[in-house]
Amino acid sequence: MEILEILLSENFWAAALRIATPLIFGVLGALICEKSGVLNLGIEGIFAAGAMAGWMAVWLGAGLWTGLLCAALTGAFFGLIHAILTVPLGLSQHVSGLGITMFATSVSYFTYRTALPQVSSPPRIEPFQPLDIPILSDIPFLGPVLFQQTAMTWLALFLVALVWWVYNRTPLGQALRAVGDNPNAVDAQGLSVYGLRMGAIVAGSACMALGGAFLTMSAFDAFFFGMVNGRGWICIALVIFASWRPGKALLGALLFGAFDAFQVRLQTEVGAFVPSQVFLMAPYILSILALVIVARRAEYPRALLTPWFKGQR
């Protein structure tokens, strides 16, 4: 009975969408990189860097949107490093990506500590506020779920539509899909394989950083260590779950958000009998199960993980 009550409450679905928002940014970013043929395991670190850069810009006096721009540029910077290492130099995408994660995470913590050497409680900023859209937010159920989210959630949903449009309706999207399937096809038609792949990694990484920025600028109002907490890795799994499709990526992120929101609420209901760690594990276990079921049929970009070198065929 209680389970049904949770599932029907508007506040549960609002939480699910809120939890899903950084994952939507992250999974879109990973999707953009991987569709071009390059895995970006730097995502976890880029989340941290985005969270740090966005928060710090605002803390230093910039506006919220300027802060977001700073976060995106920081992500693009780390993406560019990954792009140079993996595309023209053709180094291992795994090693480079994990390196970026460690590097970006440490640099973020280091910058934070350097700026604020002796602060016990993290300084707060004024985060994005829920967009209370007059008439729409009064619609029963849908109103509170959809129309009381912050601007960043709307930005995430807009990006899903934008990415879908680019991949399905524009020449650029066709070229980006082709370069992840057979770079030789792109090269033979006179397009630049390096240009497309590096561009995709930079754009994808900027998108990932927005996911990190959501954490400090919308979900919480401060930066603290370990706040990314594996969200980047979840995105890597969700891309496979989504079979590299933007629409399914949104669905996957929402599903995870729902699992997570559900476990928190279930904990208060039956927490007396079951240890709380079981609930914390639940969304991850369910994600793995969903992945096992879906991923067997997933169609990988054929050139994923395969470096391409000019003049070598």
């Binding site: 020449p171 066709q174 899909r177 082709a178 057979n182 096809a185 792109v186 038609q189 970009p301 054929r302």
Partner: peptide, 14 residues
Amino acid sequence: TLAENLSAIDNILL
């Protein structure tokens, strides 16, 4: 040198 995930016409226009 064809991208197998695109349609024939998309490959031609690429």
